[in-house]
């Protein structure tokens, strides 16, 4: 009996591995497939043909990759411009509606995303923002602010107020104190929030779909279009490209974000 105890465990682990790695393996197979049709268990013909098509200099894929990255960078900048002052004020100032303000940033995530974005699209239509670069950046920013404001608030809260007082005490102005003491100390948390926002923007689909289509094409939209057209090779290659920054940044975040910062989120 005791010797057989590993069997259920192995089965469960195997199932988990299949659930996690099965789709990934399927994606990898499709990425290097030239021809694959039923009833074959594996691709009939292997090759890099579709990679060449994706990375064609004037191809759709390169254009949308470029769009995605530029949008993500602008989203990060906009989010930081809001979240650094907002996070500091929420962490330090005695704002009367502090928790309400923090919850307000959560609201867009609390409602069904499609419903929210259809309405945003309607409003943006009135301002002529639909199908524009600015419109897409704004939609992504609304989502990114949840992470960036909450994490920035936590990062600023984690800094002992005496560290700022020590600077004021020996002659630093409030602004100088902020830029030489507070901000550098909050930087790990703020960097982590920037990375979250960047990744979130890179992967964002619903908002881009309602506000950006058909003028602004991003990687997730390309992925969607390719899968809808049954072009699994293009879809898989696009997904692989999207996976690279995610994995890379996740590893960095793990080093950046310390437990004491995370513990202050929402406190």
């Amino acid at each position: 009996m005791i010797q057989a105890a590993w069997i259920p465990r192995a089965i469960i682990l195997g199932l988990f591995a299949f659930v996690i790695f099965g789709p990934l393996a399927n994606m990898l197979l499709w990425a290097f497939t030239e021809v694959w049709y039923f009833p074959h268990k594996l691709p009939v013909e292997w090759g890099f043909g579709f990679w060449a098509r994706v990375f064609k200099p004037r191809g759709n894929a390169m254009l949308s990759l470029n769009n995605s990255v530029v949008i993500a960078i602008f989203v990060v900048i906009t989010c930081l411009l809001v979240s650094i002052p907002a996070g500091y004020a929420l962490a330090r100032g005695r704002l009367p509606w502090r928790s309400l303000i923090l919850v307000a940033f959560l609201l867009p995530q609390a409602f069904p995303s499609v419903a929210v974005h259809i309405n945003i699209a309607r409003i943006f239509y009135g301002f002529g923002l639909n199908g524009t670069f600015v419109g897409v950046v704004l939609v992504h920013t609304v989502q990114g602010l949840v992470f960036s404001v909450w994490i920035a608030t936590a990062a600023f809260s984690a800094i002992d107020r005496e560290l700022e007082e020590a600077a004021r005490n020996i002659g630093a102005s409030p602004l100088r104190t902020f830029f030489t003491i507070t901000l550098p100390m909050a930087m790990p948390g703020i960097m982590a929030s920037a990375i979250f926002v960047f990744l979130q923007s890179l992967d964002e689909f619903t908002g881009t779909f309602f506000v950006g289509v058909p003028d602004i094409m991003t990687m997730p939209l390309l992925l969607f279009t390719a899968s809808m057209e049954g072009n699994y090779q293009i879809a898989s290659i696009t997904a692989l490209i999207l996976l690279v920054p995610s994995v890379f940044f996740m590893l960095i975040i793990e080093r950046f974000l310390k437990a004491d910062v995370l513990a202050k989120v929402g406190s």
Partner: peptide, 19 residues
């Protein structure tokens, strides 16, 4: 304001800047 008083304080927690 505190920064214009030309005083210097040694804090109980030392309040040294870890960075």
């Amino acid at each position: 304001p505190p920064d214009k008083r030309n005083m210097a304080m040694v804090f109980q927690s030392y309040a040294l800047w870890p960075h």
